[in-house]
Design a protein around this nucleic acid. Structure first.
Lengths: 127, 127
DNA sequence: ATGAAATCAGTAAAGATTACTATTTTGCAA
DNA sequence: TTGCAAAATAGTAATCTTTACTGATTTCAT
């Protein structure tokens, strides 16, 4: 087990305490409740570092900002165009990655499968 | 067939003439070769408009900028962490979307499946 | 022709991310 | 312990990406 700095641990804690797939700015605000003078740069640096080590994941849904996910277990995402929320989908991409490797010779390390549409709640509230 | 403005048509033409999945900035520079005084805002506005009408696609790979694709036929993408290039993968997500709809009741309109790893060329040049 | 709607160029502003620097913290070896 | 090098941080500036705005221009159906 590695020894994380207080700031790095706080970023992990905030990210693991939510299922909302937040942005860096949101994480920054949350961590500030515990460490009021943490720097936004520190949040970004730690997010990048943690992602490169596979401790957290980056989630891109096309809203011109990156989102992060503390849950590294195998799953995919659904992005609602209405409420802009990202929710988890239990879809395993492992087999597709393997197949792609075998077929193409590419080194496939991971995959992100993002479904886009309108969630049940937003569908209800349509006018 | 719709009647596009010169600027809008130029954006389409540039995007359809490449397989590189370019960013808005790249498209802007390319279109400027034909229309030197086109505005970057015009490029963004038309990209957003064309995407909302399903004429082009947005591709997010997690490099903190959006990419665009003039090829709307069903396919997925591979993102090389080495050379940062995006290439097409012939993978059909239609069935997965349908299954997800049936299972969850969500309105699934589309999906983006992005495989991440290292391409054969970058693998060769590793040190 | 002509007037409303759409589109545009140019620019400003906002939002997201990265870079930089001086300071502080950490871990380890003497 | 103490000292020192490496790592990490706060604070800020700078950059990059995207959106918003405004007045002028174009389009197009009447």
């Amino acid at each position: 087990m590695k020894n994380f700095s207080r700031q790095r641990q706080a970023v992990i804690d905030v990210l693991c305490s939510t299922k909302t797939h937040p942005s860096a700015a949101w994480i920054y605000e949350k961590v500030r409740e515990t460490i009021p003078n943490i720097s936004l740069g520190t949040v970004y640096r730690n997010l990048a570092l943690l992602e490169s080590e596979g401790i957290i994941r980056k989630v891109s849904v096309g809203d011109s900002s990156e989102h992060f996910d503390g849950d590294t277990s195998m799953h995919s995402h659904f992005y609602c165009k209405g409420c802009k929320q990202i929710t988890d989908i239990p879809f395993d991409t492992t087999d597709d990655c393997k197949k792609l490797e075998e077929k193409t010779g590419l080194s496939v390390e991971s995959a992100t499968y993002t479904f886009v549409g309108v969630c049940t709640n937003c569908n209800k509230n349509k006018n």
